Simulated assay, not measured.
Amino acid sequence: MSRVIMIVGNGEVPDGAAATIDAADVVVRFNDCRSVGKGGNKTDIVAVCNTGRPALAMLGGGRWKTSKPVRQARAIWSVRSGAKFAAMRAKLAVTHPDLDDFCDDYTAGFESFARATGRPHRVIPAGRQEGLERDLARFEPPPYVVPSSGLLVIADILSSFASDRDDVVLAGFGHSGWEWHPFATERRYVEALASEGRLRRLDQSSFSDLVPRSLNHVL
């Protein structure tokens, strides 16, 4: 049975999209799930940036852990490989000394949280980022540090989570933000995937195409 897999970034979501997003079989959100509200409420997977300041902020203080979308999620995914980021530390110390805490690894904290709350925790493998960087190289990106968490999740879902029959839909991806993600190149890459029919973007013209399906699937 095919599924609708909705990947919802923290960017602008089309007006009236909430019900359509909530009707998907699987809804993936990111970090503090700022997409909740206008972007619906259903949350099956929370994909987290598990290194650096964002990770420290989420794990500290308890607000992220007790938020409604995080409590609702049935799985936690850590987007970054701790070992790969540890290997990047020496180079970044030279090229980007202001990112001294960028490679600090908090994966164990997310794993402990997931275990304590009875949910699976998964780390996207380092090879996924390496493969994505090779794909991005075809578009001649400017100098950057790493691909965005959103693009890593898109690549991972297309490679190892979605079947050929699944409908992978993006919402809330404006491809803008932190200066050291190659956002303009990521936009071109996503458009190429869309032209190949591997995914599509959610817009108002497609709302009626997405219908509720069975929720009895395995994350």
Rank of each mutant, 00 (worst) to 15 (best):
A90G: 08
S67A: 04
I157F: 15
V13R: 14
H181T: 05
A108P: 00
G62P: 12
H121M: 00
R122H: 14
Q129C: 09
G62F: 09
Q129R: 13
V153W: 15
N10G: 03
V36K: 05
F183D: 03
R187M: 11
D135E: 15
R34D: 08
R201P: 02
R188L: 12
S67G: 03
V48L: 10
G40S: 08
A126R: 08
L199E: 14
D15N: 13
S2T: 12
R165T: 15
N31C: 01
D203N: 15
S2P: 10
N216L: 14
A192F: 02
L59A: 09
E196R: 05
G39M: 01
S208H: 13
E191Y: 10
G109V: 00
T95H: 03
R34K: 09
P142T: 11
G131P: 03
A192P: 05
A126D: 12
V36Q: 10
P14M: 07
V145Q: 01
I21F: 06
F161A: 07
R29Q: 06
G174H: 08
W178C: 02
V153M: 13
Q204D: 11
A75S: 15
I124Y: 09
V46A: 13
A19D: 15
D25Y: 08
L215D: 13
S148K: 02
S35N: 11
G109L: 01
G61F: 08
P142I: 04
